[in-house]
Amino acid sequence: MFKEDLKHNMAAVIEFKDITRTYRLGDEVLNALDNVSCTVQSGEFVAITGPSGSGKSTLANIIGGLDKPTSGTVVVDGQDLSHVRDRQLSDYRNRHIGFVFQSFNLQGTQTALENVMLPLLFARMKPGERKARAKECLEAVGLGDRLKHKPSQLSGGQRQRVAIARALAVKPSIILADEPTGNLDSERGAEILKLLKDLNKQGITLVVITHDMSIARQADRVIQIKDGKIA
């Protein structure tokens, strides 16, 4: 059902060129990413793997527009993200990226519907349309009967489905999932991965950060990071 919606986003391409991201820890300078260059094609399913502290989360954060490189250029959808201001970067996250987190990051006091409506709030969508779209997304992840439930009333798998519905709400070109199955048992994990893969088949570029090789094996391509470099 999202195929038609996403047609205009089919040209989405992520291009990294000589990306370096350094952190300062006291006097120590840490190279989280060291001169990384790579490309993700539109509609691709890419897994980014690597051990803890390898820099794979930093890479994901830069793709997601949550972080900016110290040097180098990131171009997504023809938009250079390395030099934009907060306002443009926020709008970019809002329109192009759907985040799925390991710990779901749902608003505990709000219903599933309200959680999914949150990104639409910042897209300045009208309240009526907002509700309709959120409902549509929750139905798409199989939670059409859980609209008024709060996260505490949902199982882990259901919570992650709400998070995926939230990621879908603004019709993103890229879904960025950081260890999406990390907090789930293997059965629920498999279901979530299947859902993500289905969305990918409908044309959404899927970037999954994981250290689970069984997930990485299902990806079109694996980018392995070690010590801030592509291995």
Partner: peptide, 14 residues
């Protein structure tokens, strides 16, 4: 929560 709001597109100003 603020982190989530920012991730899904809330500007600093918002």
């Amino acid at each position: 929560e603020i982190g989530v709001m920012r991730a899904v597109g809330a500007r600093r100003g918002t």
